[in-house]
Every structure is written in structure tokens, then in C-alpha cells.
Nucleic acid binder design. Structure first.
Lengths: 244, 244
DNA sequence: TAGGCTTATGCCACTCAGTGGCAGAATCTT
DNA sequence: AAGATTCTGCCACTGAGTGGCATAAGCCTA
């Protein structure tokens, strides 16, 4: 139980809170970070498939068994930076002022807040390396999408729990138990929209040649979210009508 | 080249066009279908991880080497029904009346058209088995999401090519080469929205106890698409405001 | 219908991701 | 400082996925 809590904490906060942890936990986090950094380095140099786990473990001086106690798969270690962001997103979403505001706005703010929570030192570079690697490694991409999807579902249930847009368990209306309900459906769609906007923001951020700061990522996120209504209204013209 | 075309054709059309093919191709398709059916059967009975490829290949009386010439991975064979749908979607999208209509409407119609193209005999059951399996098999889910993502990107480029909402290669405007451009961004978001709606429709369709027809799936798709504007506008209330 | 040509298949050996078990070392507790 | 807990390393193993090569099956021409 204790390890769970501390793990979640350090995943979001990064380096600073590590000093207060017991030695055993600190060591674990140190090897974890060493594995992440070395993995991104090696993968970047020789490609994801060009590096075996034996090689990586040898470089970090850790047994393969230990690797699999820290990460669930080879893809997992390379996706750690992004996963930290998703974890932070869920945390922020839990405690965020929301009443009376649009759901997509709350999600946008939560995503922006999660980005702001990421460690200022090196996180941006790690995500950049991770995403560029994922772009040319199908299995990594798939792994990342799956994790994102799980986060999405968690976000939907968190929203429904906190804001009670849809009844959680025993509803008074018998019709809402038969089908998912309009509120539930709208929640899922709103979350998926926001996630889509975030993905476009991230893709653009990764594609740009320089200036990879958290602030710039947030800016791109806001731009993408602002385009959602326009995207829904865009019509197809005969030639090059960009819509409006 | 020839094999490519015929494979794409039969993937969308199903059984009937097979009679016109040369014997070699027919055999290949027969083993392919046998692998799919037997795989879904065995996976459903013993779970995805409970069936080794050796076992599957033995049941179909095919060498493991042949399996990997037909499918790219173990997950691939179980996802074939859904992948056929995505392939059909891209085909329909290529030749669809679109001028003057909303982009999301065109996408909705294309998805509905793709569903209508699926073979009436047994396809629904195969998708049902495939999706229910994916729901309890993380690696399958990841594989499916990755394929969906690739299809999404293909759809975006197809749209931009056909409707020239954004310049395809050499633009006259130098600014549009620097950044993705608003039209490109909107296209991606619109496609992601439609795909999200389709996923919700599919999830609901899979979850229902009976009545798994293609028509019902289309009906759910239209319902989900109709909720997109509502999802964007939904606000969070203090208690149980379902929005409106 | 027989010949050569093309292409799919089967078989074998191999790499590598991922797992379970166990002995020993490091850390925590009292 | 001793005992309990937990982490680590090592070993052997399963199973997915690949490359190479010989053979068989389908295809085309005469």
C-alpha cells in the first residue's frame, strides 16, 4: 500500500520528493530512471529493435529479471515519460474547479495543468525522444495508444463519479440501465475529443525543429482545443474552401 | 500487383467474388478464412494466451511459417474482421459524394457505407467475437488501436488529396509549409471525432445482449454522431445536470 | 498434355521477449 | 545485533516471430 502511494507521487513530481523516501525506494527509483534514460539513448542510437533487453540491462548493470519488475514490457520503458503525464492528468482531473463550465474546457485545463506539473528538468527532452521513437516503431505506438485508451476510460469514470452526470450504480430511471445513456455517451465523446486535440498538439510539437518547452505544448493544446467547434462545422467545398 | 488488388477486393466483398479468382488465390483465401474462424473459436474457448500458434496451426493443418505469411502477428488474425471494415471505409471514402456537405457527415456516411459493404453472412458474429476477445486481451486491444490510428492517418491524407482542403505538396503560400495549417488540423480533428463516435457505437453494440445486425450498428453510429455537438457543449453542473 | 517457370508451403534452427523459482544479499524493524 | 521482509541475480523454460532452403503445387507455353 505504501509503495503504491509513493510510486504515484514520484511519477508526477519527479526528482525533488525522492530525498524524503526510504533508501530502498530511492534506489528503486534511481535504477528506474537510469533504465529510462539509457533506454531512450540506446533506442535513439540503434533503433528500438536494434537493442536487446540483455544489452540494455548490461549497460545499466541490472539483471533482466529486475527490469521486468520495474516495467511491464520493453515498450513500457520507452513510454514512461508520456505515461507520467497521463497519470498526472488523472490526478489533476480529480481535484479541479469545474462547476458551470464546459466539460471540454475542464479537460483542456486539466491537461494543461498536468503538463505544468511535469518536471521542468529534462522531461520535455525525454518526451520528445520517446515520441520520435514511437513514430518509427509500430509496437511502441500501439503500446502508447493502449495506455492512452485506458487513461481515457479512467477519466470518463472519474468524471461520472465526481460530477454525477450519469448515475454510477443504482439508477432511479430503469431506462438508463438498459442503454449507456446520453450523458455517458456525451462524456466519452467529450473526453475523446479533448484527447484528440491533445494528440494533434503533441504531434505538432514533436514535429517542430526546436523550442520544445512545456509552455509551447500547452499553447498548442489550447489552439487545437479552440479548433474543435470549427472542425465539427467544416464543410467540403468543390475546390479549396478552407471552411469558416 | 495483381495479388494486392484482389486481396483488397475480397477483403471488402467477402465470399462471392472468390469464385472468379485463380485456384491458387482461392486456396490462399480459404486457409486465411479457416485460420480466422478457428482462431476466434479457440481464443473464445481458451483465451488468447491459452492458445499457442502451434496449436492453432495444427488445428488448421498449416505450418507456422504459412501463418506468418498470411498474418503479421498472432493478434492480427483475431482482428481481421475489424480491419476489413477499416479497409472498406477507406475505399468508400475515396468515392463518395461530398461537395457542400459537412466533413463529419461525409465521414459518417462513409463509415455507414463501409458497414453496409461487409458480408451479410457471419461478419457481425465475427466482429462480435473479435471485439469481446479484445476487451479482455490488452495486446489485442493495442493492436486494434494501432491499426485504427494508421487508418485515421490514411483517411486524413485521402481527404486532403480529394477535397484539397489543404495543399498536398508544393503550396503557393510559404507559411503553410512551416506549420500544419488550420485546415489540416481541422481535418484531423474531424476524423478523430467521427472515429470516436464509431468506437462508442461499436462498444455499445458489442455490449448489448442480442440483435447484433449491421443495421443496428449503423443506427448506433448515427446516434453517436448526432451527439457530437452536444458533447462539445455539455457543461458540468453541481449535481446531476445532464446538460442540454 | 508435357515441359519449364513461378510461387506457395513445410521444415529446421535460431533470436529474443517475457515468466517462474530459488538462493542469497540488502534493507527495515525491534 | 538478530530476525523478518523485501529486493536482486541467476537459471531454465515457454512461446512469438524470422531466415534459409528444399519441395510441392499451381501456372503458362508449346
Amino acid at each position: 500500500m505504501t509503495s503504491e502511494k509513493t510510486a504515484a507521487k514520484t511519477a508526477a513530481n519527479g526528482t525533488e520528493s525522492a530525498a524524503a523516501l526510504p533508501l530502498r525506494e530511492r534506489k528503486k527509483l534511481r535504477t528506474r530512471q537510469a533504465l529510462i534514460d539509457t533506454a531512450l539513448e540506446l533506442f535513439d542510437a540503434h533503433g528500438f529493435d536494434g537493442v536487446t533487453l540483455d544489452r540494455l540491462c548490461e549497460a545499466v548493470e541490472v539483471s533482466k529479471r529486475t527490469f521486468f519488475r520495474t516495467f511491464t514490457s520493453k515498450e513500457d520503458v520507452a513510454m514512461a515519460p508520456t505515461q507520467d503525464l497521463w497519470a498526472a492528468f488523472l490526478e489533476v482531473l480529480e481535484s479541479h474547479p469545474a462547476e458551470g463550465r464546459r466539460l471540454v474546457t475542464v479537460l483542456e485545463e486539466s491537461l494543461a495543468g498536468a503538463i505544468g506539473r511535469m518536471p521542468a528538468d529534462g522531461w520535455a527532452d525525454r518526451v520528445l525522444a520517446s515520441r520520435r521513437l514511437a513514430a518509427r516503431t509500430p509496437s511502441m505506438d500501439a503500446h502508447g495508444l493502449a495506455f492512452c485508451d485506458r487513461t481515457t476510460r479512467a477519466a470518463v469514470s472519474a468524471i461520472n463519479r465526481r460530477f454525477s452526470l450519469a448515475p454510477p450504480a443504482g439508477p432511479a430511471d430503469p431506462a438508463s440501465s438498459a442503454r449507456p445513456g446520453t450523458a455517458e455517451l456525451r462524456t466519452r465523446l467529450a473526453v475523446d475529443m479533448s484527447v484528440a486535440a491533445f494528440h494533434q498538439a503533441l504531434d505538432g510539437w514533436v514535429a517542430q525543429p526546436s523550442g520544445h518547452t512545456r509552455e509551447d505544448l500547452v499553447r498548442r493544446l489550447r489552439t487545437a482545443c479552440a479548433e474543435l467547434p470549427g472542425a465539427l462545422a467544416t464543410t467540403v467545398g468543390p475546390h479549396d474552401r478552407s471552411g469558416g
